[in-house]
Amino acid sequence: MQIWVNGIEKSLPDALTIRQLLNLLELPPGPVAVEVNRDVVPRVRHDQHILVEGDRIEVVTLVGGG
């Protein structure tokens, strides 16, 4: 399936969960929060939430700011 992660189009296996996606991305250490199609998906649901074709995912973290 084709999905968008942080604005980048990716071809990934069907029926991936958010948890599986995060593992595939090999993120740097640190806390992250995830949105799918503009709605936050709480961490406790990352194992159950299955991504589908065309989903737009945001993976965000903390950075320095004023």
Partner: peptide, 29 residues
């Protein structure tokens, strides 16, 4: 204060920003 931004998917650098905040501070996003 801190900001929220997309994780850089192309970087494998250590995410040391969070670890560099002094302990016990109230973090205001």
């Amino acid at each position: 204060t801190v900001a929220l931004r997309r994780v850089d998917l192309s970087s494998r650098g250590p995410g040391s920003f969070f670890a560099s905040l002094p302990a016990g501070m109230t973090i205001l996003p």
